[in-house]
Simulated scan of single mutants.
Amino acid sequence: MNPSPDLSPLALVLQADPVVQGVMALLLLASLACWAIILEKAVALRRLGREARLLAAQVARPDAGPLAEDGVAAATLRAGHAEWREGRDPAETAGEFRARIEHGMRAAVTHALRQAEPGLPLLATIGSVSPFVGLFGTVWGIMHSFSGIAARGDTSLATVAPGIAEALFATAIGLVAAIPATIAYNRCTVRLHRIRQEMQAAASAAAARLARRPIFVAGSRAAAAE
């Protein structure tokens, strides 16, 4: 009586066709890259969320305390104050002056958030491509298995099962890589969008407050008294 085939995951990998083994290795590397990006984005988004709250608190209460010089909130407020210190051009309306201050602050927010975006396209690629890469390994493995069956002329389950299991295991690894990548990409993009909205709302409020403060008129050294 023939011994039952070994269908453990390690055996399926070691006994697979070289092409299928290459597909599995590629998918495992993609999965490792996916989790590395997920961990990095979790830290980055937590930091950005904290900066968004600090910016909103600083706008609501200017006496809330000093901000870290290297933080996004401080950089955003510096950008707004830089535009305010340049003064209002005589040809500018009050609305245009406020819009210029707000534009400078929004640019600082956009720059900070763009630094958190690298890696997200790779997550999207892994999430969308991995199932098809795994399917390619499955199709190749099934073709190789059927070729072996035809060569041996044996269609028993003990002969068919290992090759089919190896092929299907490639699809399983593809799904293991794709599912976390897709979930993480969606969550990260939604979180980034919310942080951007929070920061831009705070920037708008800060610009409105700065535009109402006494300002230097361009070309003048005197500031209006409060």
Score class of each variant (00 low, 15 high):
residue 95 G to W: 08
residue 76 T to F: 06
residue 122 L to I: 10
residue 106 R to Y: 08
residue 127 G to S: 02
residue 122 L to T: 11
residue 86 E to T: 03
residue 89 D to M: 07
residue 114 R to D: 15
residue 72 V to K: 05
residue 114 R to G: 13
residue 55 L to A: 06
residue 143 M to N: 04
residue 133 V to F: 05
residue 53 R to G: 15
residue 41 K to I: 01
residue 120 L to A: 09
residue 131 P to H: 05
residue 85 R to M: 08
residue 121 P to V: 03
residue 62 P to S: 03
residue 110 T to C: 05
residue 101 I to E: 07
residue 69 E to V: 09
residue 97 F to R: 15
residue 113 L to C: 08
residue 95 G to A: 12
residue 89 D to T: 02
residue 134 G to Q: 06
residue 127 G to N: 00
residue 73 A to D: 04
residue 95 G to M: 09
residue 118 P to R: 01
residue 43 V to K: 15
residue 75 A to F: 08
residue 107 A to R: 12
residue 53 R to A: 15
residue 95 G to N: 10
residue 109 V to R: 06
residue 97 F to L: 03
residue 54 L to K: 09
residue 116 A to E: 13
residue 48 L to F: 11
residue 84 W to R: 15
residue 127 G to Q: 00
residue 46 R to M: 05
residue 69 E to W: 10
residue 128 S to G: 15
residue 131 P to E: 11
residue 101 I to R: 10
residue 131 P to V: 03
residue 124 A to T: 07
residue 122 L to S: 12
residue 54 L to F: 02
residue 126 I to V: 14
residue 123 L to N: 04
residue 128 S to A: 11
residue 42 A to I: 06
residue 102 E to A: 14
residue 150 A to E: 13
residue 77 L to W: 10
residue 147 S to N: 13
residue 80 G to M: 00
residue 117 E to F: 12
residue 87 G to F: 02
residue 50 R to P: 00
residue 69 E to K: 14
residue 110 T to A: 14
residue 58 Q to D: 01
residue 130 S to C: 07
residue 55 L to T: 04
residue 136 F to L: 13
residue 104 G to P: 01
residue 79 A to R: 01
residue 55 L to V: 07
residue 129 V to W: 06
residue 138 T to I: 04
residue 80 G to S: 03
residue 90 P to D: 11
residue 137 G to E: 12
residue 60 A to T: 07
residue 82 A to W: 01
residue 100 R to G: 06
residue 65 G to K: 10
residue 133 V to T: 14
residue 41 K to R: 14
residue 98 R to F: 00
residue 99 A to K: 09
residue 63 D to E: 12
residue 57 A to T: 11
residue 53 R to K: 12
residue 85 R to K: 13
residue 150 A to N: 12
residue 130 S to Q: 05
residue 143 M to C: 03
residue 112 A to S: 12
residue 105 M to D: 05
residue 111 H to N: 09
residue 85 R to C: 00
residue 60 A to H: 12
residue 126 I to S: 01
residue 78 R to N: 00
residue 129 V to H: 09
residue 100 R to Y: 01
residue 139 V to S: 08
residue 58 Q to C: 08
residue 104 G to D: 02
residue 62 P to V: 02
